[in-house]
């Protein structure tokens, strides 16, 4: 199985605070990787470096064989132009904790915005795709609603559909259920599970241990800007080798 995402000795600091201290990770195509860890462990930052929303200070990341944000020449990495970075991002869907739907656009307009503007698809085709995606997340009848008229769970499902509209080869989820009322978490996780079963490559940062157990092929546990351990959920969640992982799991379970 080839690596869809390859992360090599990635370092990142915000001012004097080092949030990523040398991350190495491989994600195979078609697999689901769930990243767990306490707040401030650097998991969200790591996710954001994968589509270059944050620049790395050291190391490199490649998605589907292409370096993210840089071009290698000799022993140097040259930062790409904005245009090229934007093009790379269209291959990587990102789902935010706070949904970040565009509130002044209808659900359908949210979904077709990028396909129209970035991929220059004909409007008819983009809208047809958008409606198909909305059906897939169970919101076909909400196409003309504004985001504010939807529940949090519905908004996040729209956000997932919006990320899918560009037909990305990789999906990144940054705590997709953390901003939701407890009774709405399930509907969003169901959509993500459904995508997982269809073989979408994804990396999910979350606090939902049950979801990790059920869906993840690999669970990664991070703490203090490092990966403490990783492996299949049965191993990491039920027989953690590290004390730090054990104490984290004992608190959240």
């Amino acid at each position: 199985m080839s690596a869809m995402v390859e992360i090599r000795s990635v370092h990142k600091s915000f001012g004097s605070v080092e949030v990523l201290r040398g991350i190495d990770l491989e994600v195979a195509a078609g697999r689901v990787t769930v990243v767990l860890g306490p707040s401030g462990s650097g998991k969200s930052t790591l996710l954001r470096t994968i589509n270059h929303l944050e620049k790395v200070d050291r190391g490199w990341i490649s998605v589907d064989g292409a370096l993210v944000g840089y071009r290698k020449s000799g022993d140097r990495l040259y930062e790409l132009r904005e245009r090229e970075i934007l093009k790379q991002r269209t291959g990587i869907g990102f789902v935010f904790q706070n949904f970040n739907l565009f509130p002044h656009l209808t659900v359908l307009e949210n979904l077709v915005e990028a396909p129209l503007a970035v991929q220059r698809r004909p409007r008819k085709e983009a809208e047809a795709t958008a409606r198909r995606l909305l059906t897939r997340v169970g919101l076909a009848e909400k196409a003309d609603a504004y985001p504010r008229q939807l529940s949090g769970g519905q908004q996040q499902r729209v956000a997932i559909a919006r990320a899918l509209a560009l037909e990305p080869k990789l999906l990144l989820f940054d705590e997709p259920t953390s901003a939701l009322d407890p009774e709405l978490v399930g509907e969003v996780l169901d959509v993500i599970k459904d995508l997982a079963h269809q073989g979408t490559t994804m990396i999910v940062v979350t606090h939902e241990i049950g979801f990790a157990r059920e869906v993840a092929d690999t669970v990664v546990f991070m703490d203090g800007g490092r990966i403490v351990e990783q492996g299949p959920p049965a191993q990491v969640l039920d027989h953690p080798r590290h004390e730090r992982t054990r104490s984290f799991l004992s608190k959240v379970l």
């Binding site: 589509n51 929303l53 904005e82 245009r83 934007l86 093009k87 991002r89 269209t90 990587i92 869907g93 990102f94 935010f96 706070n98 970040n100 739907l101 565009f102 915005e113 990028a114 503007a117 970035v118 919006r162 990320a163 560009l166």
Partner: peptide, 17 residues
Amino acid sequence: DKGQLEAAQALGLGAGR
């Protein structure tokens, strides 16, 4: 909200757009 800009960037929308 700053998240709006990030969402637009993540979708690959150019600066002018």
